[in-house]
Design a protein around this nucleic acid. Structure first.
Lengths: 197, 197
DNA sequence: TCTGCCATGTAAGCCGTTACATGATTTT
DNA sequence: AAAATCATGTAACGGCTTACATGGCAGA
């Protein structure tokens, strides 16, 4: 039941947390700024916005007429704004660190919103993701070892590349985890013994 | 209209080309041997097999009773075999090198069947895939450059990792392309001037 | 003038997963 | 005795894309 829409809601809420936006712009940012939800269709986005509104997480802040001073007016844009309920909801979602957060799709969204995620949740997500990837590496490695003889050269080549890609991502995560550790350590030090002048 | 089912048909045909198999085993090999179609559901596989049969690409080779000598018999397995028409069809599909062949999903299937693909088609697919990845690298790089200032640390980190992953895949493809070149060169040499004793 | 981008939406339809039904055999 | 694996299937639900409808503005 891992719906892409759940991630989408999260991403939209995260985007609107920074300020009001209209649908078209939301899509653009999802695509180019977050780099996730490439080529998301409007058939998904607009209904999602309406759902969010029905839930009370966002509200229509009014229809913006053309901002420019041109003679004709541009098609009115429906601008959405996050509500207090939405902020609360965002907080809840951001706090979740269960298995769904380390799925390929969802992880990128969760990671993109790490600035707003508390350090502990960040660490739990990173560790879960790491485990997920490690599992994948092992499964692939076993598969390679087990069928090495029967595998033709190309299939072998592909599997090796897959493994290496996964390994690299594990390394990347490791780097991030230790960075988180350093950060936490730093904060603890600050809390326990403020820097001496 | 790029249906995953198309790739699935191709993969199944490719698998059955090596010998008759029953559905359950097809799924297993798709998952562990080819490493593609991870966790493919039977709700997709069995209908696919029946479609293949309706098209005349595969035929039911008979229901295999328990091979062992045990007292009870295992649930009968429906074994499928590729037909001459299926072999022809496989040849056609394998010859295609259009844009659909360099999609993320499809590429892995096409690549896994490279042994049965003629060298020219191999090269065209590899080059198409390369272009696809390169495009992705450039788009991401532009996005990073353009929004570097506004991007928070995590989003930046993620995009960089994405770019690096794509770059590595480009390098990998480059290696494969030059290997193909060498192979072709080698064959040409052989054809034009057989090795002198 | 025509293409392309901005901008919002609806409806249909497909693809594929999930859940269910069934049941034997092997392993724990 | 229970759980996992082998083995084949069906039905329904739902997510997401595609295609369509609409229309103003900018630049080639």
């Amino acid at each position: 039941m891992r719906r892409r829409v759940d991630s989408l809601q999260l991403a939209v809420l995260g985007l609107l947390h920074d300020g009001p936006l209209h649908g078209y712009e939301v899509r653009r940012r999802l695509d180019v700024r977050l780099g996730i939800f490439r080529a998301l269709s409007y058939g998904t986005l607009y209904p999602c916005l309406r759902t969010l509104q029905a839930e009370g997480w966002v509200r229509e802040v009014g229809v913006e007429a053309d901002a420019g001073a041109g003679p004709g007016r541009r098609r009115a844009r429906v601008v959405y704004e996050i509500t207090d309920g939405g902020r609360e909801r965002l907080g809840e979602l951001l706090h979740q660190a269960g298995p769904s957060a380390w799925d390929d799709d969802t992880f990128s969204v969760r990671f993109a919103l790490f600035t707003r995620t508390d350090p502990r949740t960040r660490l739990r997500i990173l560790e879960g993701r790491r485990a997920r990837l490690q599992e994948r590496v092992e499964q692939l490695s076993r598969s390679i070892d087990h069928t090495r003889e029967q595998l033709d050269a190309y299939a072998y080549e592909y599997q090796c590349h897959e493994v290496e890609t996964a390994r690299r991502e594990v390394d990347w995560i490791d780097g991030l985890i230790s960075a988180e550790g350093r950060r936490q350590h730093h904060h603890q030090q600050e809390r326990q013994s403020p820097p001496v002048p």
